[in-house]
């Protein structure tokens, strides 16, 4: 959902003149309409095939009708809140660990060399692979899921922070020191503002990964959240609910990513974007 290319595409869109922005919007609407048409065609195909009669509720019409109903009844909020809270805690812990570690790694070339290989190694382990360990390690399913999300979100934040710190102009630090800055000033006046964009871009990437890891993590143990809702709908053969939940996952993910994108833009001090 969020990768470097999409960030770059959006950055380019932000720089387009007014007319260009309208064009981007029109094209986005065309793209979404295309997706709807494909979905509708799929539904038609399923409906016309006698072997797949059971799945007709996956089509857009029943799904969207169900979606409206779920929004109206508050069901969407009920199933999204536990998920959002898990992702929120996971991102919070990942930021609390990843930013200080990223600063240390970015500031110390020696530490960078020592940690680089183990970090890259850990990063390549799917967070879901930690599942059995997480379940043994934590008393509650909730804690285990938050741990998995933290493991997924940590690396993008850590690496992005470290890269930002490495790009800090050493002359800024010299000037600040010369003008009487203490370590507290160094951190809050120079280092943190300088890397704010990098940290937020890391959090945005982490959010994308966390949102993806969330659903399979919620298939286990817990009895709340979007992943649970999907499993539950499958078990009860309530396919319009299942499809509506999938749409909800996409909508929330897209919204969160866009909000993160706005934050990145707001904190980007560089002229013309990163």
């Amino acid at each position: 959902m969020t990768d470097v290319t999409s960030i770059q595409t959006q950055a380019r869109a932000m720089r387009l003149p007014k007319l260009g922005r309208v064009r981007v919007l029109v094209n986005a609407v065309i793209g979404m309409s295309g997706l709807l048409v494909l979905w509708w065609l799929g539904g038609r195909y399923v409906a016309s095939n006698p072997n797949m009669m059971a799945f007709t509720n996956f089509a857009p019409t029943p799904t969207l009708a169900r979606l409206v109903q779920m929004f109206a009844s508050g069901e969407v909020v009920d199933m999204a809140l536990p998920s959002l809270s898990r992702v929120g805690y996971g991102l919070l812990y990942a930021t609390a660990i990843g930013v200080p570690m990223g600063i240390l790694v970015g500031r110390g070339p020696r530490l960078n060399e020592i940690t680089n290989v183990p970090f890259q190694f850990m990063r390549m382990i799917s967070p879901l692979a930690w599942m059995p360990i997480a379940v043994m390690l934590f008393a509650t399913w909730d804690a285990a899921i938050i741990f998995l999300i933290t493991m997924a979100a940590l690396w993008p934040i850590l690496f992005s922070t470290a890269a930002g710190v490495k790009r800090i102009d050493p002359a800024w630090l010299k000037v600040a020191r010369n003008l009487g800055a203490n370590p507290f000033h160094m951190l809050f006046t120079v280092i943190l503002p300088a890397i704010a964009v990098d940290v937020l871009m890391g959090i945005r990437l982490a959010l994308g990964v966390a949102w993806i890891v969330l659903v399979p993590a919620e298939y286990l143990g817990v009895s709340s959240g979007l992943g649970y809702a999907i499993n539950d709908a499958r078990d009860t053969l309530d396919y319009s609910r299942l499809a509506a939940t999938v749409v909800v996952i996409g909508m929330i993910g897209f919204t969160l990513d866009s909000l993160a994108g706005l934050l990145v833009k707001k904190f980007n001090w560089m002229r013309g974007g990163h």
Partner: peptide, 11 residues
């Protein structure tokens, strides 16, 4: 100290 580059904080 003043350097060849002004080294202003760009934000």
């Amino acid at each position: 100290f003043m350097f060849q580059s002004p080294s202003l904080l760009p934000w």
